[in-house]
Amino acid sequence: SAVVMEEGSPGEVPVLVEPPGLEDVEAALGMDRRTDAYSRSSSVSSQEEKSLHAEELVGRGIPIERVVSSEGGRPSVDLSFQPSQPLSKSSSSPELQTLQDILGDPGDKADVGRLSPEVKARSQSGTLDGESAAWSASGEDSRGQPEGPLPSSSPRSPSGLRPRGYTISDSAPSRRGKRVERDALKSRATASNAEKVPGINPSFVFLQLYHSPFFGDESNKPILLPNESQSFERSVQLLDQIPSYDTHKIAVLYVGEGQSNSELAILSNEHGSYRYTEFLTGLGRLIELKDCQPDKVYLGGLDVCGEDGQFTYCWHDDIMQAVFHIATLMPTKDVDKHRCDKKRHLGNDFVSIVYNDSGEDFKLGTIKGQFNFVHVIVTPLDYECNLVSLQCRKDMEGLVDTSVAKIVSDRNLPFVARQMALHANMASQVHHSRSNPTDIYPSKWIARLRHIKRLRQRICEEAAYSNPSLPLVHPPSHSKAPAQTPAEPTPGYEVGQRKRLISSVEDFTEFV
């Protein structure tokens, strides 16, 4: 048969007729292969192709491409040299491709048809291009793949890379869960390890502090508590009631339409708007009261037996805890006409967050109470924005700035309102402590230090009264110190430094 060459192609190359033996071998191979691939376009007849790359030819070592076609129900084999250009295909004639002069020997084609199974398996396991790669995943090629499931790999992101949580363990979102698992493993320790309690022994800490320079003076030496005195035992138990972190309780009120001037209507609300609910979820963490331990979680007086509701929101960081007394989460009882059960919590909070959804101005004093010092007013606006402002009593104007209003988005509203309420509550605590000038409020841990110092002074006084020969370590507060001759004046800087060093040991009130 003659071949018409394309323009620009090399000279004529004689194409030899395939021997009958080659056709029989390739026909047997075509019957084993699956003929249901995917359909081509209507211009080209339905056909199945599979590209198999052999590394070497037997005796020649030339890479070839073998295409199996099922045109007219008769499979045909096409061998081509890759750099050459194939002729145009037609549905009426068999596929013809040019070969190099080196394939002119018909014996070479017979060798190609009689490829060993080793070469076929190696060509099938190679990388296939384009559409033949999808075909190689079918059941027909499963014989050339190794048996057994593939090893499982770690989760992959859409980009093909490992997620960040699997790369950096410290930033993994499941870090707290692993800590819980470690605690569970520790709890399952053997009885021999049960006595080993991690941490620092208080006796060891005391020993280090006792021999430090801070205890060089007799006034700073630790003293032993009497065991037989019940009054001192009660004082030590009272110390446990003062937490070592700051605590805040903040009221949250929802004002519906037409309720801006009605205290009873505001306290009777059992739910609010959708934006109000989203605002609550951002204030803190939802907790169930019956599962809380009052000595570990500050509840601000809420009952854990269901008297004040089942849930509330709280927030904490390293040095403070805040609980929100939310009116809509507290039960509304029919027998309580004046809502006294709610007001006994909300009316005693220094700061209230008022979500004013009424469309009218909310005035300070609508919720009557002796300790309502500051109101954080949240007014929802259009386009997911809110107006946040402050209202306070006249005696609080020096501590709280009420002249600045803020426009905040719904997303950042819980954070801004919480921070403003916490700052206002700190100012309210300082303002409330002014009624007792001898006990200015600095912080909870300073209050613990003052309680310890008062307890020490009482013990020293009782020891001096029981044994008059012992001198008083600290003179009583009601006694007057003996007159001392004025010492020589020293520079102001040295006096300030000495006073600062003494105050650092005794108390921190002056620095606050």
Score class of each variant (00 low, 15 high):
351 V>K: 01
327 A>S: 10
311 F>C: 06
271 H>C: 13
341 D>V: 10
261 N>C: 07
276 Y>K: 00
418 R>H: 03
315 W>L: 04
305 C>L: 06
263 E>G: 03
402 T>A: 07
263 E>Q: 04
224 L>S: 14
234 R>I: 06
432 H>R: 06
481 A>N: 10
367 I>L: 12
280 L>G: 01
371 F>H: 12
377 I>M: 08
434 R>M: 11
274 Y>F: 10
282 G>A: 03
315 W>E: 05
348 N>V: 05
361 D>P: 09
302 L>A: 15
336 D>M: 06
240 D>M: 03
346 L>W: 04
273 S>K: 01
248 H>L: 08
232 F>H: 06
406 K>A: 15
449 L>W: 10
313 Y>D: 04
428 S>F: 05
442 P>Y: 04
487 A>V: 07
411 R>I: 08
225 L>E: 15
508 F>M: 15
246 D>Q: 06
255 V>A: 03
251 A>E: 03
402 T>Y: 05
247 T>M: 09
431 H>Q: 10
217 D>V: 13
373 F>R: 07
357 D>L: 00
371 F>I: 05
456 R>Q: 15
383 Y>E: 05
372 N>R: 02
411 R>L: 07
418 R>E: 02
364 L>K: 12
233 E>C: 11
447 A>Y: 08
281 T>E: 13
260 S>K: 03
396 M>T: 03
385 C>L: 04
315 W>K: 02
333 K>H: 13
324 F>V: 02
311 F>P: 08
391 Q>F: 03
287 I>Y: 09
296 K>W: 12
493 Y>M: 14
480 K>P: 12
352 S>D: 02
456 R>A: 13
318 D>C: 09
322 A>H: 03
264 L>H: 13
417 A>E: 01
328 T>Y: 01
345 H>C: 08
498 R>Y: 08
404 V>S: 13
459 I>F: 13
469 S>K: 06
321 Q>N: 07
499 K>Q: 12
483 A>Y: 11
308 D>V: 09
368 K>R: 12
435 S>F: 09
420 M>Y: 04
418 R>M: 05
431 H>Y: 14
486 P>F: 09
234 R>Y: 11
468 P>Y: 11
355 Y>P: 00
253 L>S: 01
362 F>V: 05
403 S>M: 05
272 G>K: 02
504 S>Y: 07
319 I>P: 06
266 I>G: 03
264 L>A: 13
493 Y>W: 13
409 S>V: 02
445 W>F: 05
249 K>F: 15
332 T>K: 13
336 D>L: 10
266 I>P: 03
441 Y>M: 14
410 D>Y: 00
294 P>H: 05
501 L>M: 11
246 D>E: 13
224 L>R: 07
323 V>I: 08
430 V>Q: 09
401 D>N: 07
499 K>Y: 09
326 I>F: 03
330 M>V: 05
333 K>S: 13
330 M>Y: 05
281 T>W: 08
331 P>T: 08
501 L>H: 12
501 L>Y: 09
408 V>A: 03
407 I>C: 07
364 L>S: 15
309 G>A: 14
299 L>M: 08
458 R>N: 15
305 C>N: 13
239 L>N: 09
429 Q>L: 08
350 F>G: 02
489 P>N: 11
476 P>N: 15
397 E>G: 08
228 E>C: 07
400 V>F: 09
324 F>Q: 02
490 T>K: 09
284 G>C: 06
290 K>T: 13
437 P>T: 11
294 P>D: 13
402 T>D: 10
383 Y>S: 05
218 E>W: 09
443 S>W: 09
263 E>M: 03
352 S>R: 03
439 D>M: 08
400 V>H: 03
264 L>K: 14
360 E>N: 08
274 Y>K: 08
295 D>P: 09
326 I>C: 06
388 V>T: 01
459 I>N: 08
498 R>D: 14
227 N>W: 06
294 P>S: 10
421 A>D: 00
226 P>Y: 07
313 Y>S: 06
305 C>W: 07
502 I>H: 09
262 S>R: 05
402 T>H: 08
251 A>L: 06
228 E>Y: 08
349 D>R: 04
483 A>T: 10
392 C>Q: 03
304 V>F: 14
306 G>P: 13
309 G>Y: 08
290 K>P: 10
505 V>H: 14
353 I>L: 04
264 L>E: 13
467 N>F: 13
380 P>V: 01
421 A>L: 01
439 D>C: 08
299 L>V: 12
284 G>T: 06
253 L>F: 05
387 L>N: 04
435 S>Y: 11
427 A>C: 06
362 F>I: 07
458 R>P: 13
230 Q>I: 11
381 L>P: 00
451 H>I: 15
295 D>H: 07
460 C>G: 14
301 G>Q: 10
256 G>W: 01
305 C>S: 14
331 P>K: 08
462 E>L: 09
226 P>K: 09
316 H>A: 15
420 M>R: 01
392 C>L: 04
223 I>D: 11
